[in-house]
Amino acid sequence: MRRIRLKKRLTQEQVAERSETTPVWISVCEKGTRNLSVRSLSVIAYALGVPMAALLDTKDYPETDPTQRIYSKQTAKRVAKS
């Protein structure tokens, strides 16, 4: 899920808005600390604009550069000021 989000250059806030959830819920899902239902996978896949199978198959969305960060608008403003 995180790989796809980063490849599409989306923030957790954007995915949360599209899926009508919260950024905290998206974060928990990305960390894998929660077992997701099929419905939850469907909602996330829709928010990311990918088929549900893409959340399980990593060949189309390989590991991203770990130094790459996608910031929220608030964080981006703080980083830019630094």
Results as ranks from 00 to 15, higher is better:
M1R: 03
M1I: 09
M1N: 01
R3N: 13
R3V: 01
R3S: 10
I4W: 01
I4N: 09
R5W: 02
R5L: 08
R5P: 01
L6C: 08
L6F: 04
K7C: 04
K7E: 08
K8V: 03
K8M: 07
K8C: 04
K8A: 09
R9E: 14
L10F: 12
L10R: 09
T11N: 08
T11Q: 06
T11V: 12
Q12V: 09
Q12C: 06
Q14F: 11
V15A: 07
A16S: 03
A16F: 09
A16H: 05
E17A: 15
E17C: 05
E17G: 15
R18F: 10
R18D: 04
R18H: 11
E20H: 15
E20M: 14
E20C: 12
T21P: 01
T21C: 12
T22G: 08
T22M: 07
V24G: 06
V24F: 10
W25A: 15
W25Y: 13
I26L: 03
I26T: 02
I26G: 01
S27Q: 12
V28P: 00
C29P: 00
K31H: 10
K31V: 05
K31W: 00
G32Y: 03
G32V: 06
G32T: 07
T33L: 13
R34V: 14
N35W: 00
N35I: 09
L36A: 05
L36I: 05
L36M: 14
V38C: 03
R39N: 05
R39T: 10
L41F: 12
S42Y: 09
S42C: 04
I44D: 00
A47W: 08
L48F: 08
L48I: 07
V50T: 03
P51C: 05
P51V: 07
M52P: 04
M52W: 01
M52R: 08
M52K: 12
A53I: 11
A54R: 04
A54M: 04
L55K: 01
L55C: 05
L55W: 00
D57W: 01
D57G: 02
T58D: 14
T58G: 00
K59A: 02
D60Q: 11
Y61I: 01
P62S: 08
P62Y: 03
E63M: 07
T64F: 00
T64V: 14
D65I: 07
T67N: 12
Q68S: 04
Q68T: 11
Q68K: 14
R69D: 06
R69N: 03
I70V: 14
I70F: 02
I70P: 01
I70A: 01
Y71C: 06
Y71V: 06
S72G: 09
S72V: 10
S72W: 13
S72Q: 07
S72F: 13
K73E: 15
K73V: 13
K73H: 14
Q74S: 14
Q74T: 15
Q74K: 15
T75R: 15
A76V: 05
A76Y: 13
K77T: 14
K77C: 02
K77I: 13
R78F: 10
R78N: 07
V79N: 03
K81F: 05
K81Q: 14
S82K: 12
S82C: 06
